[in-house]
């Protein structure tokens, strides 16, 4: 019954969007963290989404019908951390410099809104599928 697939498909998307929202929260929380060493400073993290392929269900052309989305991994941003002169900072290195995280708060806010919208859409899809299934179960009454 293909209507039940919707729960798996949209459920996987909810999970992926939650991970995205978690990394965004982590990035925003650490936007102001500093370190005296460029190697240890916090770097923005972003999840990489990938379509889940269901190999057991292929269509007439042998094309695997995809079933949902998963998080392939989380990558750290390659943008170099900001170096600034702040000798009074306890984390400053011997030359008086601190390294700030490379989180871009504007980018993170946009990411957060996008994740929020996608989450709401997937919830809507699940609700629709549930309504239709309940109506189908009640068929003939």
């Amino acid at each position: 019954m293909s209507l039940f697939n919707v729960f798996n498909i949209s459920g996987s998307a909810l999970n992926a969007q939650t991970i995205r929202l978690n990394t965004t929260a982590s990035n925003l929380a650490n936007a102001e963290s500093v370190s005296g060493d460029a190697a240890t400073v916090y770097r923005a993290r972003h999840p990489v989404f990938k379509t889940m392929l269901d190999d057991s269900a292929t269509d007439a052309d042998g094309m695997a019908s995809s079933a949902g989305v998963r998080v392939l991994g989380i990558v750290e941003s390659k943008v170099p951390p900001l170096m600034r002169f702040d000798p009074s900072n306890p984390a400053a290195n011997k030359d008086g410099y601190v390294y700030g995280s490379n989180v871009n708060p504007i980018e993170e806010m946009a990411n957060m809104i996008s994740a929020n919208r996608s989450f709401a859409t997937d919830i809507e899809a699940i609700n629709t599928a549930r309504d239709l299934l309940l109506k189908t179960i009640a068929m003939g009454h």
């Binding site: 293909s2 697939n5 919707v6 989404f49 995809s66 949902g68 996608s118 859409t121 997937d122 239709l132």
Partner: peptide, 24 residues
């Protein structure tokens, strides 16, 4: 028609689920 609409629903739900997947 009912079976097909059910199938189409899961295909469209899959599109919505992959709205943020690069290359989908």
């Amino acid at each position: 028609a009912l079976l097909l609409h059910g199938q189409r629903l899961s295909v469209l739900a899959n599109n919505l689920a992959n709205a943020d997947t690069p290359g989908f």
